[in-house]
């Protein structure tokens, strides 16, 4: 009766096996699970052609897509985070910074550049989600404040593309105070009558949403982007209820009056040019 005891390996679930694809040529859409030819997604501004899911894109791709002819000049690239709290969780903060820098090629979670959008001179600060979750520490706060001050000085419109989990815990209260610093600077921009457009990309939550994210003359979101103050997991744990479908997605925010419009990535530039023409003096 040996064969009774014979152990069989459990079969691999078919679903998993089918979805395994070699890296490179094909991409699996995170939303509809469809397998799409990578070139097709890239040609389509990194939007899934099947379900219109907007993949997260790098700060560099953002700048290239928004500035005329993909031409821009990066400014304020010479400041770096330090570690005022000597923060260490499972890893040292300094190590995390170094890893992020190697992974993304950026020195921080935001890049500011000057260029033209529809021939209108504009400053754009684009956040990089892959750099520590786009979190805002002193450097992000400082770079965005400088971008605002430059906009004031040159009377140029400012666009910020947000993509961030919120304040950076590793810099403690310093991070928190960046919210006040940036919002104070935005008050001056507002008074000077200079346009500020906030673009909310997936995800924008916490201290970034609760400061410059929601303070745009126009708040524009990408489809299905997660935007809110508290993260969905925190809310679920607090109220012990399942969250309704679509909660905190761009469509939900539009419905509740928190954003002006949802614009697809392909249309974003032309919408921005239209709005900027309205907001800047006649040429």
């Amino acid at each position: 009766m040996e064969w009774f005891k014979k152990k069989r390996k459990p079969r691999e679930p078919i679903g998993e096996r089918r979805l395994k694809v070699p890296d490179g040529l094909w991409l699996k859409c995170e939303n509809c699970q469809a397998i799409v030819y990578k070139e097709e997604i890239l040609r389509n501004s990194k939007v899934c052609p099947k379900c219109n899911y907007h993949f997260r894109i790098s700060a560099q791709d953002r700048l290239r897509a928004l500035f005329d002819d993909g031409k821009y000049e990066i400014i304020d690239d010479n400041i770096r985070s330090c570690d005022p709290l000597m923060f260490k969780d499972t890893k040292k903060y300094k190590e995390r910074l170094k890893e992020s820098e190697e992974k993304t090629g950026f020195s921080e979670a935001v890049v500011t550049a000057v260029g033209e959008v529809g021939k209108i001179p504009v400053i754009i600060s684009a956040m990089e989600y892959n750099f520590m979750g786009g979190s805002m520490g002193s450097v992000v706060g400082e770079k965005i404040t400088r971008a605002i001050e430059l906009a004031l000085e040159r009377r140029m419109p400012l666009i910020v593309v947000c993509s961030s989990g919120g304040a950076r815990m590793q810099e403690g209260v310093f991070s928190l105070m960046q919210m006040a610093k940036i919002s104070s600077a935005l008050a001056r921009l507002d008074e000077a009558g200079i346009p500020y457009i906030s673009i909310l990309a997936d995800p924008t939550t916490g201290g970034v949403a609760a400061s410059f994210g929601m303070l745009g003359d126009l708040n524009i979101s990408e489809p299905k982007a997660l935007v809110g103050f508290a993260g969905p997991r925190v809310i679920e744990q607090t109220i012990h209820q399942e969250l309704p479908p679509g909660f905190q997605r761009a469509e939900f925010l539009l419905e509740h009056g928190m954003i002006d419009m949802i614009v697809e990535r392909k249309e974003l530039k032309s919408v921005l040019v239209n709005c900027l023409r309205f907001m800047t003096p006649n040429q």
């Binding site: 919210m179 400061s211 994210g213 929601m214 103050f229 109220i239």
Partner: peptide
């Protein structure tokens, strides 16, 4: 902290905080 709830998000918790920061500064 600010209350993390469904209603709070619906009514714009992030906007309410951001707006206060900007307005208190001036």
């Amino acid at each position: 902290g600010a209350y993390p709830g469904i209603g709070a998000e619906e009514r714009g918790q992030a906007e309410a905080i951001a707006f206060n920061l900007r307005e208190m500064s001036r």
